[in-house]
Design a protein around this nucleic acid. Structure first.
Lengths: 192, 192
DNA sequence: CGCGATCCATACTCGTGCGTATGGTATCCG
DNA sequence: CGGATACCATACGCACGAGTATGGATCGCG
């Protein structure tokens, strides 16, 4: 049934473990990150793990740094490359709304803010995103003060949405209804 | 240092354990809910606990139900008693923003949505609040569709705010700045 | 007073998951 | 082709937290 489904016959590297860890975190949260479970999933045993990493903590650390690195650089750059500043916000909203998969790790880490290791990472990532958002609002015409507060509001709505949907499954919303919601969001959070 | 600071010399009841559990959940999350830790904090040992509850799971269940009961009934009733529908939303916003303490349990449970026991409770509570919010928006003049989406957006902002502040400590915002943020929120999320 | 019910302490068992020790197998390179 | 190095398996020790067993203390009440 759950025998080794992955025919990865090559030896493993540290990066393989980190990727598997991130996948597991996205699926079941940081708390589920256990070395023996990971090993089973990779078709090996703990003996392998402790060759690559000194401890479980080290794996978490490395995985988080790897995740932070990969980042959302593409999205940011693509949005900032758009000529019309007013068009950036709607595009950003729609894009994030329709590509939720990359945000699963962020959502999982959001629920693990009691682990001392994830706090600094999340603080850095969230801070960068907030600054990015604030900039777009300024470029869209909002005065600085206003732009900052609007960015706070928007980002909070994003974070809350992740929680209410991935984990809690509030009355499952239909696809069309979701699109309508996104458009409503654009209308009320975006300067005309 | 942390010796029994509570001079509660009377015997304990199940409710005492539930209250202590909720306090611990609010402070350190559901994951920190351990019977021996709780017992220490109450100045007794496990022997006491297992007289009142069959299992740790039972305590969690009872605590959650107790929390759901206490609820936010007062707030809802007071807001609905206000004569002018337009005045309700700003009042609700300001009130929630300035009395965050009661929301700490909700914030903690938000991060424990992987525990099967908390999901139904949070689903019910969130659903009730959402319906309440939707109603207020309708009474404030928004068409039904619009009211529902606005309630979704507002509630998501609320949830996101809890995450970003209790747990993550984004660049510590000052008191005045926070008030300005709340007013900004009211302006953009509330029908004129 | 005294006795039954209620509440609690002490001392265990048991499962789970991290980390270690040590030996085995595969791979690369001279 | 043989040995050094990289990778992995097996078998442990150990800590920690849930749950159990059993006896002791304390309260209510006739």
């Amino acid at each position: 049934m759950n025998a080794s489904a992955k025919p990865e016959r090559t030896r493993l590297s540290a990066e393989d473990w980190e990727d598997a860890a991130l996948k597991l975190i996205a699926d079941q949260g940081v708390g589920a990150l256990a070395v023996e479970a990971l090993a089973r999933q990779l078709g090996v045993t703990k003996g392998s793990f402790y060759w690559h990493f000194r401890t479980r903590e080290a794996l978490l650390q490395a995985s988080l740094e790897r995740w932070e690195q990969y980042g959302e650089r593409e999205v940011i750059e693509q949005i900032e490359a758009m000529p019309d500043p007013r068009a950036r916000l709607p595009e950003l909203f729609r894009r994030v709304a329709h590509e939720l998969a990359p945000h699963r790790v962020y959502a999982a880490l959001l629920k693990a803010l009691d682990h001392p290791q994830v706090v600094p990472v999340m603080a850095r990532v969230s801070q960068r995103r907030m600054e990015f958002l604030t900039n777009i609002y300024r470029e869209a015409g909002l005065p600085p003060e206003e732009a900052l507060n609007r960015a706070r509001l928007t980002y909070a709505a994003y974070v809350g949405f992740l929680q209410l949907n991935f984990t809690l499954g509030l009355p499952r919303i239909s696809h069309d209804e979701f699109d309508a919601y996104v458009e409503h969001m654009i209308r009320t959070l975006t300067p005309a």
